[in-house]
Amino acid sequence: MAEIVNLKRVKKARARADAQAEAVANRAKHGRTRPEKIRDAEADAKRNALLDGARKDT
């Protein structure tokens, strides 16, 4: 026999897990100091400039 599952509980548990994962991502993204944000922005700009310079024109 199959195990009986309460679908409301499963859906709520899945929603809580998704919300928890999103919260972790937001803490990592927004919970940084100003120097960290500036360093990351400079690294992104450098990476984008490097990629733009290596792009082939068609």
Rank of each mutant, 00 (worst) to 15 (best):
Q20N: 10
R27I: 05
V10I: 11
E36G: 03
L51S: 08
A45V: 12
R32V: 08
A25R: 02
E36Q: 01
L51H: 06
K8H: 14
P35T: 09
V5K: 10
K8V: 14
R14T: 09
N48V: 15
R14G: 01
K29R: 00
V24G: 02
A28G: 04
H30P: 00
R27H: 08
E42G: 04
R32Q: 00
L7H: 07
M1G: 14
P35Y: 07
A19D: 04
K56T: 15
E42W: 08
A43F: 01
E42Y: 07
V24F: 08
D52E: 15
A21K: 02
K8M: 09
A19R: 02
I4E: 14
D52A: 15
D40A: 07
A15N: 01
L51T: 12
K37T: 11
H30I: 12
A43V: 06
D18M: 10
A21D: 04
T33S: 00
K46Y: 07
R14E: 11
R16M: 11
E22T: 02
A2R: 02
V5W: 04
A2H: 10
A28K: 01
A13Y: 01
V24M: 05
K29Y: 10
V5N: 01
A21E: 02
V24L: 08
P35D: 05
R32C: 00
R34D: 03
A49Y: 04
A17E: 09
R9E: 10
I38F: 09
